[in-house]
Simulated assay, not measured.
Amino acid sequence: MRRSAWLTAVVAGIGLLAACAPSPATGSAPAEPGFPVTISHAKGSATVGHRPRRVVVLGSADAQIASALDLPVVAAVRSPSSADGNWPGLAKPLPAAVLTLDALNPRLEAVAAAAPDLILATSAQPAYGAVYDKLAAMAPVITYRHGLLQDDGDELVTMIGQAAGEEARARELVASSHAAIEAVKRELPGLAGRKVAFGQYTGGKTYLAASDHALSVRLLGQLGLRVPEQLSALAGQAEGYAASLGMVTPSAENLGVLDSADLALISTYGSGAREEFTRIPLVAKSSLAARGRLNLINQDLATTLLTPTPATTGYLLEQLKPLLAKAVS
């Protein structure tokens, strides 16, 4: 069975020995104010001995946060959906010479060749988590605190800011994110209490965010939007990894639930998926479609909304504002 590109990733076997990796660089520089600093995360903890000078990023949110904090990135995973390999919402694009790593399949020799003194993996795909010990033999690794795609964006920015010695800049980024959200709320006061459905159709299944376990629901909630009661009622029926992300998978016969929303933001993934989704009877005949409020959004917006952080708030609001205005028109 095909699975959503959001909800799973290829777990690749890596045969490299940890002995091939260089020794951690945490003790190689003189002590600096604020260092060493120890960061606790889901896989243990990482002690960073000095302000990082060579940062490797292994996930999309890691790249976005590192760019926003202006960290010295020397190697990063490429986005498979963009021509230049950059992820959407970057404060400034990373150069091609830095975008040398595969987002799904770890090449430990390439990570080691970058000689990192800090590795950011808070949003790295599961294949990188499977080789965490080998990565940690190279340099301190900062991974997610609670679970993959489950950490609050403010918390991720704060954690990475602490590890990189950029706590003040991280606080400014979080504050500016909150201010931008408040500005949109003032601009579109009619959003308060409106109902929104966000999700993706792929492999013959529709995945919809149904509870505040979904980071997208939390961000949209900050704007005053809510998940329809008919949709949130399905959350108790969800199982597996989708459930941990606050997602549900209603059948085609139950997609009438979309009409309980004032606005839908749906992406489609895979060859022919867009046409397939829009031909589903309860989608094609929905009042949302008739009123022009069924928005088929692109993958860049969808994947960034799935894992929002203060580093991408500006990008998300810029993309979402014209769509959200439909909910109050």
Rank of each mutant, 00 (worst) to 15 (best):
R107H: 11
V73S: 07
E167V: 13
A197S: 11
I14C: 14
L317K: 04
P52N: 04
D154M: 11
P95G: 05
L296G: 13
A175Q: 13
L294M: 14
A170Y: 07
T309M: 03
I160G: 01
G44K: 05
R171G: 03
E275A: 15
E275P: 08
V184W: 06
A68S: 13
A75H: 03
F198W: 04
E167Y: 04
A139Y: 09
V283A: 03
L149E: 14
Y269Q: 14
A175V: 14
L188N: 07
A124V: 00
H178D: 06
P308V: 02
N298D: 15
A97L: 10
D70T: 09
T38C: 05
K321E: 13
I39C: 09
R3Y: 09
A192D: 14
P250E: 02
F35C: 01
L69P: 06
Q299D: 13
A96G: 11
A243I: 05
S176L: 13
G161V: 12
E155G: 02
I142M: 08
L231F: 03
D62W: 01
V257E: 04
A103H: 02
G204S: 09
L101G: 05
I280Y: 01
S267Q: 08
H50I: 04
D117I: 06
P126R: 15
A115R: 10
I39L: 11
D62K: 02
A46R: 01
R53M: 14
V174M: 06
G44P: 07
S79K: 01
A114M: 12
L223G: 04
Q162W: 12
E318K: 15
A284N: 12
A110I: 02
S232F: 10
T307N: 15
R3A: 14
R107L: 07
E276P: 02
D62C: 02
N254I: 00
Y241R: 10
G221C: 03
D152V: 02
S271N: 14
D102C: 09
A192C: 06
A112Q: 08
S271P: 09
P24N: 03
G190D: 11
L108N: 03
S260C: 12
I280P: 04
E32F: 08
Y269V: 12
L7M: 12
I119N: 04
A209T: 13
V257M: 00
E166H: 12
E253F: 03
G256F: 03
L101Y: 07
Y128M: 11
L219V: 09
I181Y: 01
T122G: 00
G224C: 01
E275V: 14
R78E: 10
G49S: 08
Q237I: 10
H178Y: 03
D117K: 02
E276K: 11
L156G: 08
A180T: 02
A273L: 05
T268Y: 03
G272E: 04
G314Y: 00
A179T: 07
K43L: 15
L71I: 10
V56S: 12
V131W: 00
V217Y: 04
V73K: 00
S329F: 13
V184R: 06
